[in-house]
Design a protein around this nucleic acid. Structure first.
Length: 352
DNA sequence: CGGAATGATTTTGA
DNA sequence: TCAAAATCATTCCG
């Protein structure tokens, strides 16, 4: 580590006049005049370098200062800046002022919609959970699920904000660092303020690309969370026996047209203690499954037909009800319009 | 445990 | 835009 300078010093100390060592290495046989001239040049350069090395720091600083204070310096600086502007920077000019990235906007919108970014709603997971619990007074289980979801969401939210802040800070630090560096260098190199500005914007672009990655992965996490908690398929419970009975009864007593009206659905929903949407789901599933395999449901159909017949008989004997099942069973009969357009179940994926 | 049953969601088609 | 059809995710049951 310490060897080099000392060695040089010793060289110079001995006398740099004739740069020793070089001639031996550069013997190209003929020793033509051209070769000699080059040797001479290189020798001169080397000597200059050695001389600079030999100068004291103060001396060098003084020179630098002198150069900086030269009255032509600002003019030269401006000219160089101008040249630079016209050549290097104009090439990049085209890609400036790009419009805001649509994908970034999409991500931003989604994060805002999910409550990850944007204003804090509850102030931490506890408050969010409490709010969820308070709001869902009626559905206890539902709110419990929700508070769990909220807790996880606010966890994601916290991570997101921490990371974002970290990036922002890093970006700022880096930017000021680079700016200082460039400003420092602008004393010796032709760097215009405009160029510094441009450099800053480049840095910001890079960092916003990183931020986009963060946003992207946050979005993914939220999506996974949603599918994990909010997908009703995951917490499916079978309807109780009674509800199924009521629905089946309606279905088989309206077999020729098993499409309950909105009012009928509402009534069924009330009787079964389920939602109208669930009634719709049930009928949708029932229709398609019945149609697909009428044979399998034959027994069930007969059973409910018999039961409704008995009910009707009882009702009519009591004289209070005229609500006869419009189409008693006769399942598989050809007259049912809704059974007509049966889409053949595809032969199981058998491609040649 | 494996597969049938079943409620919910997604895709498709008129 | 709605219902059919397909598919998914869970529960039930032998």
């Amino acid at each position: 580590m310490d060897e080099q300078p000392r060695l040089m010093h010793s060289h110079t100390g001995v006398g740099m006049a004739g740069h020793p060592g070089l001639p031996q290495h550069m013997q190209e046989g003929t020793g033509g005049t051209d070769g000699d001239g080059r040797k001479q040049d290189i020798g001169d350069i080397l000597q200059q370098i050695m001389t600079i090395t030999d100068q004291s720091l103060d001396e060098a600083q003084a020179r630098k200062h002198a150069l900086n204070c030269h009255r032509m310096k600002p003019a030269l600086f401006n000219v160089l800046c101008e040249i630079k502007e016209k050549t290097v920077l104009s090439i990049r000019g085209a890609q400036e002022e790009e419009p805001p990235d649509p994908q970034l906007m999409r991500l931003d919108n989604m994060l805002l919609a999910e409550g990850v970014s944007g204003p804090e709603k509850g102030g931490g997971s506890a408050a969010a959970a409490a709010a969820a619990a308070a709001s869902g007074g009626a559905g206890a289980d539902n709110s419990a699920e929700h508070s769990d979801y909220r807790a996880k969401l606010s966890q994601i939210r916290q991570i997101y904000h921490t990371e974002l802040e970290k990036y922002e800070q890093a970006c700022n630090e880096f930017t000021t660092h680079v700016m200082n560096l460039l400003r420092e260098q602008s004393r010796t190199r032709p760097i215009s303020p405009k160029e510094i500005e441009r450099m800053v914007s480049i840095i910001h672009r890079k960092f916003s690309a990183i931020q986009m990655q963060l946003k992207q992965s946050t979005c993914e996490a939220v999506m996974i969370l949603r599918s994990r908690f909010l997908d009703a398929r995951r917490k499916r419970r079978n309807f109780n026996k009674q509800a199924t009975e009521i629905l089946n009864e309606y279905f088989y007593s309206h077999l020729s047209n098993p499409y309950p009206s909105e009012e009928a659905k509402e009534e069924l929903a009330k009787k079964c203690a389920i939602t109208v949407a669930q009634v719709s789901n049930w009928f949708g599933n029932k229709r398609i499954r019945y149609k697909k395999n009428i044979g399998k449901f034959q027994e069930e159909a007969n059973m409910y037909a018999a039961r409704t017949a008995v009910n009707a008989a009882n009702a009519s004997s009591h004289g209070s009800q005229a609500n006869s099942p419009s189409t008693p069973n006769s399942a598989g009969e050809t007259g049912s319009p809704w059974l007509c357009s049966i889409r053949q179940p595809e032969p199981r994926a058998k491609s040649p």
